[in-house]
Write a protein that binds this DNA or RNA. Structure first.
Lengths: 220, 220
DNA sequence: ATAAAAATTTAGGCTTGTCTAAATTTTTAT
DNA sequence: ATAAAAATTTAGACAAGCCTAAATTTTTAT
């Protein structure tokens, strides 16, 4: 069994490696875990001993298949609890992350699979992030960034690539939540900002920085 | 903030002291926590330093008001999660205790109060145990033991005073769950065993040992 | 009343996960 | 190519929560 600290490292390595594609550096982990690089080194040795990561001194770290499975289960639990909190308990999407950080470490598979069924087998969390399957695979929907859409097109908002509460609150106010129908009315050449029509309401302005962090799919 | 280990000690002291009525001994705590008496002593000193218990060497321990509040919150969380698992996720009452032992340490008051509302403010858990209020008071319904009922009386099953999974499974099979209507048909003088009619089904036999651990109220 | 037994505490130690300071390796810039 | 900078690891330490063994206090039995 992976400890709470170990689970957090594995999850973080998964995210920082781009879903396991690249090596992650000790310093990158230290920055995100708010610990010192020396502490990270200690933990990486321990994870390597348990066969959860491939680790060679000075060369970064990468998940083993076993480590990836643990990471995906933690992410699955995290995202299912987020769905529960938003759908059933009425939390806003900008409130649930810190609580899910705790709930994600309750390991019972029975609990999680029943929760999954209770929630009707959701495929994504309130931020549009895909929920790993019970079998341990991560669905990978192919979304575009809103900033890549051309003027005149109509798309569906599918998720975000930035999860800061303040960003999410801003989007809620603008009505930009997963499922919203968005038409790009104008794009400003100068700064790539956009004017959008969201769900038939009055036009809204969004900066490039915002558009860059919104995931969309082209409406069928 | 109380750590996970501290919360477990406080909860246990609450239970072993008869809801805070009496002093609890070091050995009693060691037995229940599956640790050594020396470890308990260490923890009691720490809890005393944090003003969560009154502790004098060799004289046992008792909760302070602050300690009792923490204990009641942990118990509240535990019991609300048990209701959730049984009512919403379809778990059986004999399955939920170990999982609730983990969920009870997720501290968010917002989470628990919303869960409480989602469950419609239950007053007792699946075993009939009362759920402490958000304000930190323990309701104390006054139930009798089934073994004290006389032949011919009709009562309502309200809960249990023994929580072993095997006992709960036995009761489920007999249809003896909270809410069941029970008529005492006969009592055997010799061993105080009983013959019961449970919800109009065929008569069942229960030993004194079983009857002693079933809580009832007299039907109105 | 007092010796034996039981309960409890003290002393010293171990593991996990963290830290600081110093040493080492890798990368970058000239 | 090599020196400086950056990244990483090693060494030694600490708090939390547990352990064993030994010492101390309380309780029990005569």
């Amino acid at each position: 069994m992976a400890s709470l600290a170990e689970e957090n490292y594995l999850k973080l390595i998964y995210h920082l490696s781009g879903s396991g594609a690249e090596e992650v550096s000790t310093n990158a982990l230290a920055e995100q875990t708010q610990t010192r690089a020396a502490s990270v080194t200690d933990m990486l040795r321990k994870l390597a001993d348990k066969n959860l990561v491939h680790y060679k001194k000075y060369q970064g770290v990468r998940l083993t298949p076993e480590g990836q499975e643990v990471a995906l289960q933690v992410i699955r639990r995290h995202r299912l609890w987020e769905v529960f909190m938003v759908e059933k308990l009425g939390f806003r999407w900008d409130e649930v992350h810190p609580i899910a950080e705790e709930l994600e470490h309750i390991a019972s598979a029975e609990l999680i699979n029943r929760l999954d069924a209770f929630l009707d087998f959701p495929v994504s969390d309130p931020h549009g992030d895909p929920i790993p399957t019970a079998a341990g695979t991560m669905p990978s929907p192919e979304y575009e960034k809103l900033c890549e859409v051309t003027a005149g097109q109509r798309v569906t908002m599918m998720g975000v690539s930035e999860h800061a509460a303040s960003f999410l609150q801003f989007l809620s106010k603008a009505g930009l939540i997963p499922g919203s129908i968005v038409s790009v009315l104008e794009i400003n050449d100068f700064d790539r900002s956009m004017i959008l029509k969201i769900n038939e309401s009055a036009p809204s302005f969004v900066s490039y920085e915002v558009a860059r962090n919104i995931l969309i799919k082209f409406s069928v």
